[in-house]
């Protein structure tokens, strides 16, 4: 175990040793195509949300218009600013859910990596199996469970299932094994530190970069989650953005879909995600490098 850990961290460092001599034009071309593939839809959303309802289906796809602010005003006016309530809800679900999930993942991952106990391997295997089960499959059973507790149609209905993330625990375990040296834990223990103190003051700071990753993953997963809140919630005051916007599209056959508002809403709903990534990716990068040096 002690020898395994350093090896894992060395590997990523050894690959990016400088060899910038020749750039393959083919690789560049493939990457450019990939970038276009990812960015074109975003560009489409940006342009489409600048069009008025009449222009959306009648003007050329990529010719921008000037109605972005009108659209935002329309969307904000929809049923007394319900959209912003959805935005706040989503932030709550993703923020609190992501944070709690990170804490649980950190503790569980650290425990799995650093303690020996009976059934450890079995638990880890079950966890690995959990990574393979898509959360979509679990949504209906979770609904039935929470219905028994009378918690459906509350904030808890979305928060509670988001807290346990097998993938997050798995990542945290890998990261704890690599980033927290056993010697350090031993030394702290010799000095009389308790398990919780060691975890909080030594393990967590060392695992921080990994935990940022776990947080980001979980935050994005909850932010984009549709099925779980869709099944759990009946009250539109509790909806996250995904469910709320889908409701604007599915108005029933006898009502027109509010395409302009949905497109504008989609644009606004990715802004916080982009902002979060831009601010957090700094820590992410720095800490990956830091972890590498330590080993």
């Amino acid at each position: 175990m002690t020898t395994l850990a350093p090896e894992r961290t060395i590997q990523p460092v050894s690959t990016p040793v400088r060899r910038p001599t020749s750039r393959s034009p083919v690789a560049t071309a493939i990457l450019l195509v990939g970038a276009a593939y990812c960015l074109l839809p975003v560009l489409w959303v940006l342009i489409a949300s600048s069009k008025s309802g009449a222009e959306l289906f009648s003007t050329f796809t990529f010719s921008p218009s000037t109605h972005l602010f009108d659209n935002i005003a329309d969307l904000s006016a929809y049923r007394g600013g319900l959209f912003w309530r959805w935005m706040a809800n989503t932030t709550l679900y993703a923020g609190v859910g992501g944070l709690l999930s990170t804490i649980v993942s950190a503790a569980a991952g650290y425990g799995l990596a650093k303690y020996t106990f009976i059934g450890k391997q079995a638990t880890f295997n079950v966890l690995l199996a959990g990574v393979l089960v898509p959360s979509v499959v679990l949504a209906v059973p979770q609904y039935l469970l929470l219905a028994k507790l009378g918690l459906t149609n509350t904030y808890w209905a979305v928060l509670l299932p988001s807290i346990i993330s097998p993938y997050g625990i798995y990542l945290a375990r890998i990261y704890a094994a690599a980033a927290v040296p056993d010697d350090l834990v031993e030394a702290a223990r010799t000095d009389g530190a308790g398990d919780f103190l060691i975890f909080r003051s030594i393990a967590v700071p060392l695992m921080a970069p990994g935990l940022v990753t776990v947080f980001l993953f979980q935050f994005v997963a909850i932010w984009n989650n549709f099925l779980l809140p869709y099944i759990m919630l009946g009250n539109d005051q509790l909806f996250p953005l995904t469910v709320g916007l889908s409701g604007l599209l599915n108005q029933g056959a006898s009502q027109p879909s509010l395409y302009t508002s949905v497109v504008t809403g989609s644009l606004l709903s990715i802004v916080p995600l982009v902002a979060l990534f831009l601010t957090l990716q700094r820590y992410w990068k720095v800490d990956l490098a830091a972890g590498a040096v330590k080993s």
Binding site: Y143, A147, K148, G150, N153, G234
Partner: peptide, 10 residues
Amino acid sequence: TAIKAGSGAP
């Protein structure tokens, strides 16, 4: 779904 679950229906 709510009817099956026994609670949650309007």
